[in-house]
Nucleic acid binder design. Structure first.
Lengths: 158, 158
DNA sequence: TTGATATCATTTGCATACGAATGAATTTCC
DNA sequence: GGAAATTCATTCGTATGCAAATGATATCAA
């Protein structure tokens, strides 16, 4: 009797409060942000296993310079989704490695031009096949069809 | 004539080398790692817009402590995908904020126990509704059905 | 033309993230 | 029981990542 009455009250309470997700629980492991962070971590780890001497952001900078040729630092940053402060550090380290060279824009004196050196071009050409493997291994848990769907949805989200 | 002959040689060469993806181009923007990084960036930005005074890793630590109660630092780290060095920094900052308290494990003297303070519990309870909004906004570019598929595939990948 | 804006780059400060090395405590195994 | 291996935590070094402030240059508009 007592238990049944309490149970009825609980159910009523639940109905009344049912506007909110209601659940008192919150499963961190199911939140998209948490899983995105883990998926990104896993990819970085796979990347490091294939390409030990370069980070993903450094690789991105070289790959994009290969695409577009010489450009100024902030423009490169916007092409690879890095703000000015971040891209500066990346380019500094690539310069120290001899992979890029810097020069001043003749007309617009604000711009710092970045370009691949011969060594940088060799490096990116050599690494691209490894990058293809990295992409494959990252997507390995998915079937080809799943991977295609995932990439489409991920692109929508990014 | 000369051009036609060269073209035929080129085609033959392509067939011979066709084991590799062959393409000389490499589209960074289409690689899963690059898009994962951007999607993660977008989520962090949405998070910050809703919860200004806490980072996603800090939130994750509080949310997980709410789940499992008092536990030792490294265990908490493994539950939220942080290595020992990273979780230490996160917990240090949460302690400085008064959200967690630390104590020594009576039996195993190596363990540093972490637990929510009353203030920490209040904070996480207050923030969870905002976190639900963050999840929704992050997934907003997808329909409900797409979001469900995406979460399933993302979980496979992470 | 000049005053207001905008762009480019740098610097500082803070917060992950992780490899590697270290030391203390515990567990395992012979 | 004791040596070896493991676990827990800390520290150091390096590398993103971003907000905010600053200074130099360029562009726009009144």
């Amino acid at each position: 009797m007592g238990r049944a009455a309490v149970s009825a009250e609980d159910n009523l309470l639940k109905l009344v409060e049912a506007e909110e997700p209601d659940e008192n629980d919150y499963r961190l492991q199911e939140q998209v942000g948490f899983i995105l962070r883990k998926a990104h971590q896993r990819h970085v780890s796979i990347f490091a296993a294939h390409i030990a001497d370069l980070t993903p952001p450094q690789f991105a900078a070289l790959a994009k310079l290969r695409d577009v040729g010489e450009t100024w630092q902030n423009q490169l940053g916007s092409l690879i989704a890095m703000d000015a402060a971040t891209v500066k550090g990346v380019i500094d380290r690539l310069k120290a490695r001899g992979f890029v060279e810097l020069s001043k824009h003749e007309v617009d004196k604000r711009r710092l031009l970045v370009n691949l050196t011969a060594e940088g071009r060799d490096a990116i050409e050599r690494l691209i096949p490894l990058a293809r493997e990295i992409t494959q291994e990252t997507l390995a848990p998915l079937s080809a069809k799943e991977a295609a769907i995932f990439m489409k949805l991920l692109a929508k989200l990014a």
